[in-house]
Amino acid sequence: MYASNAYNAYKNNSVNYASKEQLLLMLVDGAVKFSKIGRQAILEKDVKKAHENIVKTQDIFIELMATLDINQAGPWGKQLMSVYEFINYNLVQVNLKKDIKKLDELIPVIEEVRDTWHEAYKLSKREV
């Protein structure tokens, strides 16, 4: 019980005291994690668990879209928004049909988004 409470306190603190950049990395890491949990749940025919985790992944991309300031970001922001919209649209399709093939095609795209943001974070830290 104590270990569980300590872990939850650590988790809450890591979110509460994280920078905007670190929160973004946590979100994209979560998107990969939840999409893979959703995939496994589809394979196990656990419809509820699949739905919940695919929705969590969608929620992350909806948040990323809501917080992306296209006017500030310029052309790359529009491209990034298109990627986010593509992912979100396809997650809806996956969730409706529990389409493992489509999810298998989509997970590498989600991983690429994660990897890109991690690389951008590393590069931004080198410039400081």
Results as ranks from 00 to 15, higher is better:
residue 3 A to I: 09
residue 4 S to V: 14
residue 5 N to V: 13
residue 6 A to W: 10
residue 6 A to C: 12
residue 6 A to T: 14
residue 8 N to S: 12
residue 9 A to G: 05
residue 10 Y to T: 07
residue 10 Y to V: 13
residue 10 Y to L: 13
residue 13 N to Y: 08
residue 14 S to N: 07
residue 15 V to H: 01
residue 15 V to W: 10
residue 16 N to G: 06
residue 16 N to W: 02
residue 22 Q to H: 08
residue 23 L to M: 15
residue 23 L to R: 14
residue 24 L to C: 13
residue 24 L to W: 11
residue 26 M to G: 11
residue 27 L to P: 09
residue 27 L to Q: 12
residue 28 V to S: 10
residue 28 V to M: 11
residue 29 D to F: 08
residue 31 A to L: 10
residue 32 V to C: 09
residue 33 K to I: 08
residue 35 S to W: 03
residue 36 K to F: 02
residue 36 K to L: 14
residue 38 G to L: 02
residue 39 R to I: 08
residue 40 Q to D: 14
residue 41 A to T: 07
residue 41 A to P: 03
residue 42 I to D: 03
residue 45 K to V: 08
residue 45 K to G: 00
residue 46 D to P: 06
residue 46 D to T: 08
residue 46 D to W: 08
residue 48 K to D: 06
residue 49 K to R: 12
residue 49 K to P: 04
residue 50 A to D: 02
residue 52 E to G: 07
residue 52 E to P: 05
residue 52 E to W: 05
residue 53 N to I: 13
residue 54 I to C: 10
residue 56 K to I: 09
residue 59 D to A: 14
residue 59 D to N: 15
residue 61 F to Q: 04
residue 61 F to L: 12
residue 61 F to S: 07
residue 62 I to R: 11
residue 64 L to G: 11
residue 64 L to D: 06
residue 65 M to V: 02
residue 68 L to F: 12
residue 71 N to M: 07
residue 72 Q to D: 00
residue 75 P to M: 04
residue 76 W to A: 07
residue 79 Q to S: 13
residue 80 L to C: 09
residue 80 L to E: 01
residue 80 L to H: 00
residue 81 M to Y: 10
residue 81 M to D: 06
residue 81 M to F: 15
residue 83 V to N: 04
residue 83 V to C: 08
residue 84 Y to I: 02
residue 86 F to S: 06
residue 87 I to M: 03
residue 88 N to A: 00
residue 88 N to C: 00
residue 89 Y to H: 03
residue 90 N to K: 00
residue 91 L to T: 04
residue 93 Q to A: 00
residue 93 Q to P: 04
residue 93 Q to C: 00
residue 96 L to P: 01
residue 97 K to A: 08
residue 97 K to T: 12
residue 98 K to W: 02
residue 99 D to R: 11
residue 100 I to A: 08
residue 101 K to C: 03
residue 101 K to S: 12
residue 106 L to S: 04
residue 106 L to N: 07
residue 106 L to W: 02
residue 107 I to N: 06
residue 107 I to K: 04
residue 107 I to F: 00
residue 107 I to T: 07
residue 107 I to A: 03
residue 108 P to M: 04
residue 108 P to N: 05
residue 111 E to R: 04
residue 112 E to L: 01
residue 114 R to T: 03
residue 114 R to G: 03
residue 114 R to F: 03
residue 115 D to G: 14
residue 116 T to Y: 12
residue 117 W to V: 00
residue 117 W to R: 03
residue 118 H to P: 07
residue 119 E to T: 15
residue 120 A to T: 12
residue 121 Y to W: 08
residue 122 K to P: 01
residue 122 K to M: 13
residue 126 R to Q: 14
